[in-house]
Design a protein around this nucleic acid. Sequence first.
DNA 1: ACGGCCCTAGACAACGTTGTCAGTATTCTG
DNA 2: CAGAATACTGACAACGTTGTCTAGGGCCGT
Lengths: 338, 338
Amino acid sequence: MNDVAAAAGVALKTVSRVVNNEPGVNAATASRVQAAIERLGYRRNDSARILRRGRTASIGLVIEDVADAFYSSLNRAVEDAALHHGYLLFTGSSQEDADRERDLVLAFCARRVDGLIIVPAGNDHGYLAPEFDAGIKAVFADRPPGAGCEADTVLCDNVGGARTGTAHLIAHGHRRIAFLGDAPGIFTAGERLRGYRQALAAAGLPYDEGLVVMGPPDPARMRADLTRLLTASDPPTALFAGNGRATVEILRALASLTHAADAGAAGGLALVGFDDFELADLLGITVVAQDPARLGRTAADLLFMRLAGNEEPTSRIELATRLVPRGSGERPPLRAVG
Amino acid sequence: MNDVAAAAGVALKTVSRVVNNEPGVNAATASRVQAAIERLGYRRNDSARILRRGRTASIGLVIEDVADAFYSSLNRAVEDAALHHGYLLFTGSSQEDADRERDLVLAFCARRVDGLIIVPAGNDHGYLAPEFDAGIKAVFADRPPGAGCEADTVLCDNVGGARTGTAHLIAHGHRRIAFLGDAPGIFTAGERLRGYRQALAAAGLPYDEGLVVMGPPDPARMRADLTRLLTASDPPTALFAGNGRATVEILRALASLTHAADAGAAGGLALVGFDDFELADLLGITVVAQDPARLGRTAADLLFMRLAGNEEPTSRIELATRLVPRGSGERPPLRAVG
DNA sequence: ACGGCCCTAGACAACGTTGTCAGTATTCTG
DNA sequence: CAGAATACTGACAACGTTGTCTAGGGCCGT
């Protein structure tokens, strides 16, 4: 900028005015400066600008994995909102690791992002207190913050969705429904299990721990668990998958079990999955659909309202889910149960 | 930092030394400073640090869409590499729009990223010249830069992959193979069409423009094009899909056509798709697989080598593709062709 | 006892911007 | 035509760091 000023024969401040389209610059002077800018290939240094002005016009997004379909849709929605408000976006994957979540958030804060959208991996957000004091705004998405952390939160109706999905299977005659969910420490997994239990209770069905399997969606484990479930003395006639990846791995496992000799009841099993996924329509898989883009949009809206100065008490929004019947959830039980 | 210095009763520079773990600070002093830091909740301001030091330890990534499976895998691979080198990552979606690509790149440059990885949407990268002069390193991924722009480039072997995929269909007896690709302006689409033509030529088959359809993968258009192709007097017996989304939309369109009355030859069509996708295994779709993660990793490796001072001439790497037979590409033609 | 060295600490400038205020032409008003 | 309002431009400090240089005090070897 100094060089530009020298080249155009004006003061630094005049260049600054031209660069920022501020009024009060003679048209002739402005075009002279503009010419110098082009000639020298000058670009404003935003670090200095940020340092001087205090606001960075950027926000940070921490999700579990940028490559995951669910979170990358959320990512895209937040990106669109940021673009619309003229903000730049940092995104990072926490990889379901609380330490990595904290490191990412603090790295973003060191860059002085104005706001954060966090899908938390950990349960302790005390580390955010100094940042809140410094004026950072944060919105939690998909999962709530740890105890003692007050912040806007946008969730899906996990309990209601799981209840609806399970009830759907029950309505189609199933009495033994297995639940295959994510690791119990994960908020959404616990909530969905709650919904599953509520549906059983509402129908007067017993809760059988032997039908519940929880853990990260690992293909080999999934296959082993399914084999065990289906070869048990009283196997389930339907499966409820606790998340999108579980649904997909169940399909893979079922396919390989069906081809194998010990198919058991694998063939005619009913299946409802929590979370929609690409090609579920073609495969005819009934799902409880969430809307990750809407989740991201809503979180971004909340954040930008805060950034615009909204000081209302924090809110907690639950987005509705939607049951999408496609065949796999409407199959009756293969064999009538006692 | 000033406040911390005052609170600890030391000079600014001493705090700086503690914050940066520089040697030459008495242990007692250091812990006094540390205590003040904790008490005041101080965090270093990276904008000021960047301004002072010149290097930002961050890179920018421009892809077509963060929500797309192919690009989000690439994104993740780049993120991992950045993390490994202690860099922060900006990611933005160009939405296949050259202006937006340029705006994103320039926004990243204004933030003084040290390097860029670009999946270009446009064909003119003259706007990068001043940035190159300023020392920015850039690597192009998936598509080459526009003419006159010299930079490291990592591509997939689009021509070879399409040739192999088409030859695979020919080897299974097909003589009339339709090509359904992306808009012709897109580099990869053109390359893959070239590979398709090479395979035809190598087998002595004529190139029939009536069998080639190109354009953005819009469901409605895809369905209309397929209907037209299949109800023609001499319909294709096999389809080659030019990209992952096209493959998926073809599957959707075929499913709906098969259910409809005018199924035509939809049922027994052979299909090979360029680019693998989730659940292609379950659906039995033969594909020419690319490796987006490897693409990202390779691009990041090249970039970090440049950032480490590598001054060799720019390189252009082509990553091999891999034919994955899963059934749909091994079906013989439904009716023998004269 | 003295010169030199190491360890620790601080003073100060600079990075590239922008906000504030002041100054100088120019035009308007009465 | 005097005085005031206006339009334009510039000088300067400040944002929060870090690199460079300098200074004091203790310790060593001779």
